[in-house]
């Protein structure tokens, strides 16, 4: 049995699908925001060994 474009399940599950869609959208926005904050703060900058001059100081 195929699902027609106007099958009643589309109406019945509309609220559930909308809620899930909005939740996933919010999740993407949060991950994007966190990435921007962490990268701009330099949380993921590779740590480098001190140079000879820095070490001597």
């Amino acid at each position: 049995m195929s699902l027609n474009r106007q099958h009643e399940i589309h109406n019945r599950r509309f609220g559930r699908n909308l809620g899930l869609g909005l939740t996933l959208g919010a999740f993407i926005a949060i991950i994007f925001g966190l990435t921007v904050v962490k990268v701009s703060r330099g949380d993921y900058e590779p740590t480098r060994a001190p140079t000879a001059t820095e070490a001597s100081q």
Partner: peptide, 13 residues
């Protein structure tokens, strides 16, 4: 799925 009542189906809430 064939025409039964779905008043008890879980919604997002």
């Amino acid at each position: 799925f064939a025409g039964k009542g779905y008043e008890n189906e879980a919604q997002f809430g």
